[in-house]
């Protein structure tokens, strides 16, 4: 292999690495957006949904030996229930739901969830089998894990389901109406509180899916939520808060840039690279790459 070819192989390898991380960021970012659109707040417990999904899946497949499909469904349902409980118990009862108050509540929920996960699953890293073979596939000298293909495929499915739900179902349209103008939606007979609950359920579900598909590759422990949440938040802002197609593109972009930065600059500063890019974009385009600056001006937060 000549040097030019070898360089190309490295580039492809970094690209695969980036796509894999990026898909997860994209899904976390979609979760952020869903709740942001319904309530106008950032749910800082988003990363915890991912952790819960991963850890629950580990328990169901590795300890109880359930088949993957069944475990997948049960795990998502479990995290959805957690999301709904969170909304019913902590967000819904608040008498004067200001943005700041609700955000502080989500931080509290994230700390509590993290503690509960530590008590229940312990402090160690948990690992689970890959969905299919763990043998890497050869791609012109670079390698890609079958699990990475699963991750990409599932992201596409989630995006497709998302688009379908929000454009072609009545409930999805109601949710969109609420996010555009809550008062008008209420006047049209939409139960906006129910929509908020639904947004927490969906967002928890997407978080769970992200956790389930990434756990075979990165292992899961109770502390992972903060970093995943932060990167996902970065992707959401980069794509323009509330803009979910933007979030998907920005998530993948962030993952790839991070991987390239780790490869060609230094893996020591990998996390910093992502955040520097984020700052840079915010300086130049505060509304994110794909966000509308006009809409940004009208938003409360």
């Amino acid at each position: 292999m000549n040097p030019a070819e070898a360089n190309l192989v490295d580039l492809v390898q970094f690209f695969f690495m980036g796509i894999q991380r990026g898909c997860i960021y994209a899904m976390v970012a979609m979760g952020f957006n869903m709740i942001y659109n319904a309530t106008g707040i950032i749910n800082f417990a988003q990363g915890e949904f991912v952790v819960l999904g991963g850890l629950m899946m580990v328990s169901l497949t590795m300890a109880l030996h359930l088949p993957i499909v069944l475990a997948f469904i049960l795990t998502v349902l479990f995290v959805v229930v957690v999301g709904v409980l969170m909304e019913r118990l902590t967000i819904n009862p608040v008498k004067q739901p200001t943005v700041l108050r609700l955000i502080i509540i989500t931080i509290a929920v994230s700390i509590i969830t993290k503690g509960a996960a530590m008590m229940f699953w312990g402090k160690g890293s948990h690992y689970m089998n890959h969905f299919s073979s763990a043998e890497p596939l050869d791609f012109h000298g670079a390698t890609i894990l079958p699990q990475t293909l699963w991750i990409m495929g599932i992201l596409l499915l989630v995006v497709a389901a998302y688009v379908f739900f929000f454009n072609f179902t009545m409930t999805g349209k109601c949710m969109r109406a609420c996010s555009i103008n809550r008062d008008a939606a209420r006047l049209a007979g939409i139960d906006d509180r129910k929509m908020v609950m639904l947004s927490f359920a969906l967002s928890a579900g997407i978080g769970a899916v992200a956790g389930i598909i990434i756990t075979p590759v990165i292992q899961m422990d109770y502390t992972r939520g903060a970093m995943l949440g932060l990167k996902g938040f970065g992707a959401a802002v980069l794509g323009g808060l509330g803009n979910s197609t933007g979030a998907v593109a920005a998530g993948v972009l962030l993952g790839v840039l991070e991987a390239l930065g780790a490869g060609y600059i230094s893996s020591h500063y990998m996390d910093a690279i992502a955040l520097v890019i984020l700052l840079f974009v915010l300086f130049i385009r505060p509304s994110g790459i794909f966000g509308s600056s006009e809409a940004m001006r009208l938003k409360e937060f």
Partner: peptide, 10 residues
């Protein structure tokens, strides 16, 4: 690398 890193490919 950082202790929180999840991928050592680079």
């Amino acid at each position: 690398y950082n202790p929180t890193d999840t991928d050592m490919t680079a």
